[in-house]
């Protein structure tokens, strides 16, 4: 479904050039859920942005469903295949567009017909219901906003969903609701997920396999069971798991 080979991403020009991602390679199979974990600045979100076509300074090879993409340009077919949910639901919805406007514009752009019925169905699917259709973002809570963002991503009926820390801005009880929703949707539609998170427990819950990133490089590949059991090959991943599990008070 998604193959990334030897991906380099950088920002800025030579003396101040920052290499955000350094020769990263991984592959995600159809129907799989893949996690990218790491601390801030490790380049995990940047990989998603490069795949989505939101960054143009990259080299290497990105293949989505057999189609090789280049630079920042993406075909119409790509937008129907790949969609993204962003980290901050407060920044990912246009402050002056109502839910109705967001979804109808999206459906229109994706060339869908029967827009009215589809909006109702999408809202039901993400657990909001039609009562939310004409609300503006400021009339929604963080969790509700993220549901709208998920509905927007689902509007195109994509095959691959890129999830950039979809719950890190939310309270834990709301996080549970959103994670359950994402699980349900995946089971229902047979979607492929690539999920970025700094929270190992969330990734273990959501993903089958994951890659640990550090300073732009993928330093470890493991599966969820290995993560839960703390079976890491490298030092860094082991330390990261230990630090996430508990804070040890000094004697």
């Amino acid at each position: 479904m998604l193959t990334v080979e030897d991906l380099d991403v950088w920002f800025g020009h030579a003396p101040e050039r920052v290499d955000a991602v350094k020769s990263a390679s991984f592959a995600v199979r159809q129907g799989e859920s893949f996690g990218l974990v790491g601390e801030s600045g490790s380049g995990k979100s940047t990989i998603l942005r490069a795949v989505a076509g939101l960054v143009d300074t990259w080299s290497g090879r990105i293949k989505v469903g057999g189609e090789t993409v280049a630079g920042r340009h993406r075909s119409r077919g790509f937008h129907k295949t790949v969609q993204m949910v962003f980290q901050d639901p407060y920044a990912s919805l246009h402050p002056r567009h109502s839910v109705d406007r967001v979804l109808s514009e999206t459906l229109h752009l994706q060339g869908m017909v029967g827009i009215d019925a589809r909006i109702t169905r999408l809202l039901d699917q993400v657990g909001l219901g039609r009562g939310f259709r004409f609300r503006y973002p400021h009339q929604l809570s963080g969790g509700q906003r993220q549901r709208v963002a998920i509905a927007r991503a689902l509007a195109a009926e994509p095959k691959l969903l890129l999830l950039d820390e979809p719950t890190s801005a939310l309270d834990v009880s709301v996080q549970a609701e959103i994670l359950n929703l994402l699980c349900d949707i995946r089971a229902e539609r047979g979607l492929t997920y690539v999920m970025v998170s700094h929270d190992l427990a969330v990734v273990a819950h959501m993903c089958d396999r994951l890659a640990v990133m550090r300073q732009g490089r993928i330093v470890e590949d493991m599966d969820a069971a290995g993560l839960r059991a703390g079976r890491a090959q490298g030092d860094y991943a082991r330390k990261l798991i230990a630090a996430s599990t508990r804070y040890v008070r000094e004697a």
Binding site: L54, H97, E105
Partner: peptide, 11 residues
């Protein structure tokens, strides 16, 4: 802003 990126992703 992310909402511009999101709209871009819709084409």
């Amino acid at each position: 802003a992310d909402y511009i990126a999101a709209a871009r992703l819709q084409g």
